[in-house]
């Protein structure tokens, strides 16, 4: 036997036919006996029916606009990927430059030596007799590092100048192409005007004779 609480809990699902057959039978048996639950069931059914009492706007989807939107979306994503690729390449180039600045290459005696960091000072075999060690004047490693930084700065400046020069060159090329297109446009306009004049003259000759 179903209680009122359980029956009222099941009412919304009974309205949409989402109760199992066993539960529906139990609920119906309860509703036959309980006027209050019957009233609640009727009230919920009224609400459910009222939900259908609404109008909907007529919407027609513009399919060609979807294709245009999709094309624009692809272009945008392509641009994003291109930017990311350029950024990645710039980071990789910087990293490579940094690594190259830290590596030391040496060729000689039939050997190719790659070494990380500044070259260590050569080991000097101490003389047999006891000598006083002179004080260190300057660390050769620091000088070496400064030289490398100097070279690196020059390299970066050279790269920058090279990029500027290429940029200017491209701009000059674009300006030349624009000028050429402009010339061609002017020539085409002139030719068109000539053609029109010729056509007018021909028309006059042809139809002037007939008249």
């Amino acid at each position: 036997m179903m209680t009122c609480e359980l029956a009222r809990d099941r009412l919304p699902l009974a309205l949409t036919g989402d109760l199992s057959s066993g539960e529906t039978e139990l609920l119906n048996a309860h509703l036959e006996q309980c006027p209050e639950c019957r009233r609640k069931s009727a009230a919920l059914e009224t609400v459910r029916r009222a939900l259908d009492d609404v109008s909907f706007p007529e919407v027609v989807v513009d399919v060609p606009r979807i294709y245009v939107g999709a094309a624009e979306h692809h272009q945008r994503s392509l641009r994003t990927w291109r930017r990311l690729a350029f950024a990645g390449m710039a980071v990789a180039a910087s990293l490579l430059l940094f690594l190259l600045s830290r590596l030391d290459f040496e060729v000689g005696n039939g050997q190719f030596v790659v070494q990380w960091g500044p070259r260590p000072a050569p080991v000097v075999k101490p003389p047999d007799r006891e000598v006083t060690i002179p004080p260190v004047v300057a660390a050769p490693a620091n000088r070496d590092l400064e030289e490398r930084v100097e070279i690196l700065s020059k390299l970066v400046r050279a790269f920058s100048d090279d990029i500027d020069a290429r940029d200017r060159q491209r701009q000059d090329e674009i300006a030349a192409v624009v000028a050429r297109v402009e010339r061609l446009r002017t020539q085409t306009s002139e030719r068109l005007a000539e053609n029109r004049r010729d056509l007018g003259a021909l028309y006059n000759v042809q139809f002037g004779k007939r008249d």
């Binding site: 989807v61 979807i66 979306h73």
Partner: peptide, 11 residues
């Protein structure tokens, strides 16, 4: 929004 739904479906 309806147009956007079908654009997303297409994409």
């Amino acid at each position: 929004l309806c147009q956007e739904v079908f654009l997303r479906v297409h994409l």
